[in-house]
Write a protein that binds this DNA or RNA. Structure first.
Lengths: 188, 188
DNA sequence: GTCTATAGTGCGATAGAC
DNA sequence: GTCTATCGCACTATAGAC
């Protein structure tokens, strides 16, 4: 990568999350993030549309991966099994190396209504994308919405568990257990 | 009681939704809403924390009712049955008289990212309240979150169906069918 | 940069119901 | 008289027009 350090985007992310933890989200300026990352604000905005996005733009790749996993599920897989494949695929992003960062991110978002709103929007977008992918598999419209929303419900709970302080199990284990739990709870 | 006409709050709501439909949310000023309601902007803000709230503050009563219904479900009812009772209780608000208003409200919200965000927040708040009420019944922490989130999933889909253009069935019928559908889809 | 319109707040005054 | 919903005014903040 020539005269620049590699991984500018990751360095922005790391610098941002450090500063958010140290002095809070509101008081952290983009200039400060850029300085710590050894780059300029102008470059920051080449990667991120705004300050909030530095915490969220990984979610686009996550969504693409999940949708792809759903689309590639066997044709005979049930809608719920297809969603389960998508939920499991998210495990590619949520490994033990990332968990400390995810925990800081969680506390930053919890402390900031703006960021919380953005998170809700990302979840809603993800749900819509999954529902769309289910419809592409031939699933009935309202079934697709229902299974996608329920899948997001499982995802939310599993992710929250994964980042909770005392949790040591991996994300995939947790999300599979959560789905199983939902099956049990809804069974007659 | 008020100085002039009664039901100020309802008049604000009615005036607001008329104007939103006529000229759009953004171009409707609080002053215009107040004028049409025969009141002043200052009084508007006594009832609603901000302009968006005029479309949402009914949701507090809805949440209280749903939580109460959940709490009053028979002690032997399963978590999902208790949530089902809460979802059915929402039917008190969604009758055929209200459906035209709900349809206008839907289109206004769909056209406005600000309002959509607020709707997502209200749903998240409702989910948290239902989870809390489930825990108060002795349901395990993560089961409570899971069932509450899944219940909200059913609610979202059922409500969307209820306000969709061609739909004629009542909300309660739809929400019961949606829950039944989720049970079928998740069953092994 | 200035100017304007609007959202939203704080505080005290007032008109009526009781 | 009390109580309270409503109002009037003065204010800040912000977004958009120019």
């Amino acid at each position: 990568m020539g005269r620049w350090e590699p991984d500018s985007e990751d360095r922005f992310r790391a610098a941002a999350i450090e500063l958010f933890r140290e002095i809070g989200y509101e008081r952290t300026t983009v200039a400060a993030i850029a300085q710590r990352a050894g780059l300029t604000p102008r470059t920051f905005f080449r990667y991120f549309a705004d300050k909030r996005e530095v915490l969220f733009n990984g979610s686009e790749r996550l969504q693409e991966k999940m949708v792809a996993a759903l689309a590639q599920a066997p044709a005979e897989a049930s809608p719920v099994d297809a969603i389960a494949a998508a939920l499991a695929k998210a495990g590619d992003f949520f490994d033990d190396e990332r968990r400390p960062l995810a925990r800081v991110r969680k506390s930053v978002i919890a402390a900031n209504p703006d960021l919380y709103e953005r998170e809700l929007i990302k979840m809603a977008t993800l749900s819509a994308a999954l529902a769309h992918a289910l419809r592409a598999r031939g699933v009935d419209d309202s079934d697709a919405s229902l299974v996608a929303e329920a899948g997001i419900a499982v995802f939310r709970v599993a992710f929250a568990q994964w980042v909770s302080d005392s949790e040591r199990r991996g994300y995939v284990e947790i999300v599979n257990e959560s789905l199983e739990r939902l099956r049990l709870l809804t069974a007659r």
